[in-house]
């Protein structure tokens, strides 16, 4: 279970990204963070594994406060937290196997990792994960030889190789096309359900969030302005999160996009 209390982050430039955010994520829950850009979604996620240093507040994972750890302790605790990135952040020139095994780096010595001599159990598990995400036939391919959707699957497998207790997911579909986005979200939610794994998913696509998230938290200017199930995410709630003007524009763009997609689908169907 993740419990964040009074989390504040002020950047060196003086911008306050988070203002006393408190949030509890129970085991097995998939939580979607939505909000306009600059609302602090990314900062919130990155504060949890301290890729961004929080200014004040506590972040409890189980009974350990992540905010107060020194470097060596932080390194140990980071092993418990898997992270999935928007641009996949795979090591592009390494193979899928190496990328997935890199999820075990926190558990193997430097020399073993340098010589790529990972324990048999880790290798077995990496094969299993690559099979689970549907890439078992590409084990020795380099990451840069894959498509975006495939790379994100490797990203998921790498995070799972850590056997994490929490998943942090930063805009997992922002670089993907709509169809692949849905496939990735489905895979992600299935995997979390299989393992009873809690996840905080930073997502800017509202329809996608409504479809796949169990709970939605709306951030605006560094504060939580909405917290509830997707069904409570009404027009007025969305207006609170995004502001009237932005939400209306977003909705219109969305409708246009959907109509355009539908139109394309129809045309493709006619050709086929």
């Amino acid at each position: 279970m993740l419990r964040i209390e009074g989390l504040t982050k002020t950047y060196k430039t003086g911008d306050t990204a988070l203002r006393g955010v408190s949030l509890e994520v129970p085991t097995g829950q998939i939580l979607g963070l939505i909000g306009p850009s600059g609302a602090g979604k990314s900062t919130l996620i990155r504060c949890v594994n301290r890729l961004v240093e929080p200014s004040s507040g506590s972040i409890m994972l189980g009974d350990i406060d992540l905010a107060g750890l020194n470097r060596a302790e932080l390194r140990r605790q980071r092993r418990r937290i898997g992270m999935i990135f928007q641009e996949y952040a795979l090591v592009e020139r390494l193979t899928l196997m190496e990328n997935v095994l890199s999820g075990r780096l926190g558990y193997v010595s430097f020399w073993r990792s340098l010589l790529r001599r990972f324990p048999g159990k880790d290798i077995q598990r990496a094969y299993q994960l690559l099979d689970r995400v549907g890439l078992i036939d590409h084990v020795d391919k380099r990451a840069d030889a894959l498509s975006g959707g495939q790379r994100q699957r490797v990203g998921i497998a790498r995070a799972l190789a850590q056997e994490p207790e929490l998943l942090l997911v930063d805009e997992p579909t922002a670089s993907l096309d709509p169809k692949t986005s849905r496939q990735i979200m489905r895979l992600l939610t299935e995997i979390c359900a299989e393992r009873d794994l809690p996840a905080v998913v930073n997502i800017h696509d509202v329809p996608l969030a409504k479809q796949f998230m169990q709970r939605i938290v709306g951030l605006r200017a560094g504060e939580i302005v909405f917290d509830g199930p997707p069904s409570d995410l009404t027009e007025s709630a969305l207006t609170t999160i995004y502001g009237a003007v932005d939400w209306n524009t977003m909705r219109k763009e969305d409708e246009e996009k959907q109509e355009a997609d539908a139109e394309t689908d129809r045309q493709l169907a006619e050709i086929a």
Binding site: R79, M83, L90, L105, R158
Partner: peptide
Amino acid sequence: EAVSAIGAS
């Protein structure tokens, strides 16, 4: 960043 988030030395 991704490798350091894993908990690598």
